[in-house]
Amino acid sequence: MTAARHTVFMVQRQARNLMREPIWIALLLIQPMVWLILYGQLFKNVTRLGGFGTTSYVTFLAPAIVVMNSFFGATWSGMAMVADLDRKFVERFLATPASRLSLVLSQIVRSALTAGLQALVILVVALALGVHVHTGALGWLVVVVVGMLVNSAFAGISQGLALLTRREATMITLANFIGLPLLFLSSTLLAQRQMPHWMRVAADFNPVNWGVKAARAVVLPGTDWSSVGVHLGYLVALCVVTAAFANWTFRAYRRSL
């Protein structure tokens, strides 16, 4: 209970600070639109290859952009932790009864909430571009939840690395190292059927692709709810594992003091 309450306090603090950054808010909202419009135009004709489940590429793309954006955002989320460690903000709270778990969890929750907000923006822009979410309001909810889960799962890794290395450079390396490979090993931009066989197999083990599959299934007609459920389940499990990893690295950090 204490952990939950303290997490709320810590998330409030981060949210308030971000709200003071108008440029950050503007970019937060504009960035996903850029993805959607840029990729939507670039690959517009690719649906002719078949296997996309729709002839509207932007409909195929929109839910995947939510996932991609969440994933990219998460790989950077450890930056805020490195800054808090550097500025001794974390240490100050270690000398108080503040819940240790909340100090890590709040970073992940903040990251996931940002991703959720961006997911909503993408869906609104997609709506304006003529995307119809087949399963309606429930579909919107699933897409937003998927965005938050994908973000949390990778944010846990990013936080863990931040605590292990305490260097911004590591975050940048991680973002570059896994960013594009995991994007291209998923059906974000292309139908899985159009991928080489080995990549199709690899994609099944890619958490980004789990998110894309679940989010896309509720947008396109012919939703397979059991597949949606399974992929959501995978993502939840991964979130628990990576959050536990982050918490473990935090313990190691405290022992090193």
């Binding site: 500025r87 001794k88 903000f89 974390v90 240490e91 100050r92």
Partner: peptide
């Protein structure tokens, strides 16, 4: 109460 050498205050708050 602990007042550390390096402040640890949240500069953006």
């Amino acid at each position: 109460g602990y007042i550390p050498q390096e402040s640890g205050v949240d500069r953006y708050g």
